[in-house]
Structures are given as structure tokens and as C-alpha cells.
Amino acid sequence: MNIFRLLGDLAHLASIFILVHKMHTTRSCRGISFKTQALYVLVFLTRYIDLLYTWISLYNFVMKVFFISSSGYILYLMKYRFRPTHDPSLDTFKVEYLVGPCFVLALIFNYRFEVTEILWTFSIYLEAVAIFPQLFMMQRTGEAETITTHYLAALGAYRALYIPNWIYRYFTEGTVDPIAVVAGIVQTGLYLDFFYVYVTKVLQGQKFELPA
């Protein structure tokens, strides 16, 4: 564990707390893509299936259980508690365009052709692109609530912070995980556009609005 990975994980935790806080205080899931949130459940379930047969550390265990349960809780909030505030007509990205190719890529590019290994690889690829429905939705509406942008900034910071972690691990441990690194760089890259507007607008106290 190094400082970058710890900060990354804390940013990931923070993003989830911000999202749940937003839904509870506004009693609404407006502006949040159900599809993106459902993809995260799939990501966590396929990656953390190793909970059943591997022990890494208490930290690792607790975090995995938290990510699975909190993502399930968010789906529950969107699907039942605040269902009337979700507008499916804005959440129209076709997730099969993400799930299908990620699965095929996982079958081709993996470390070992085994069920759990392919599921792990699939989860890495899917996580990289799971934000697409959310970004697509914001592109359609052209705006986002400030709290939603804080959620996205924390979520983007999480994978961005994993990059210095991988560099650090390469120099201190000599380990490289090419699948995670390439997918992580792609994932972070998808946020660059958002980060730009977040820093130049939201952090200056303006509303998140995309140019028409």
C-alpha cells in the first residue's frame, strides 16, 4: 500500500458517499445514470468474486464488501426509493455496446484463460468505460448539478491516482499489471474533458454547463 493507492481508494469511497448524500438530501436521483450505476454493480461482482476464495488483507476485504454493497444500495435507491425522479428517456446509452466488446476483449487479452481470470479482466475493461452512459446523459442535457460534478470528480480522481501508484509499484516492487494500467489510463483519459470543465467552471463557483 502506498499513498497514491490509499488516496485513490479514499477518493473512490468519497465519490460513493457524495452520491448517496446527494440522493438523500435532494430526495432525487436526477442527473444520475442508472445504467452507469448498474454497470458498476456488474464490475464489482465480477472483480470481487475472489472474496470467495482469496484472502488479501482486512483492508482489501472490507473495501470490497463495501463497494459491492454500496453499489447495490445505490441501485435500490434509484430503482425503488427515488424511482419517480429518474428519467429513463435521458439515460439512453446502449450498454450492450460496452458489455459485449469488453467481454470479447477479456476473452482475447487476459493473463490466463480461466473463468475467474476472464471475469477479473472483463471487470477491468468494463470499469474503464462504465462512465459512458453518465457522460452521455450529461452531454444530452448539457448541464449537471454541482453535487453530481463533485461525485464525478472524486470518481475520476480515484483511477487517476492509481496511475502514480502503478509507477511507484514498478520502481519499488518491480511489478507491472499491463491490463490494469492500460485500462486505467483509458479510464482516466475519458474524464479529461470533464475535469477541464470542472476545474475551470465548477471550482470557480459557476454552474456545470456544456457549450451548446
Partner: peptide
């Protein structure tokens, strides 16, 4: 198999 990274990250 030493070539496979340990999946010890989140």
C-alpha cells in the same frame, strides 16, 4: 505462474 500479477488492488 509468476507472470500473472497478483490481483491485490481494488
Amino acid at each position: 505462474d509468476g507472470t500473472q500479477p497478483a490481483h491485490d488492488e481494488l
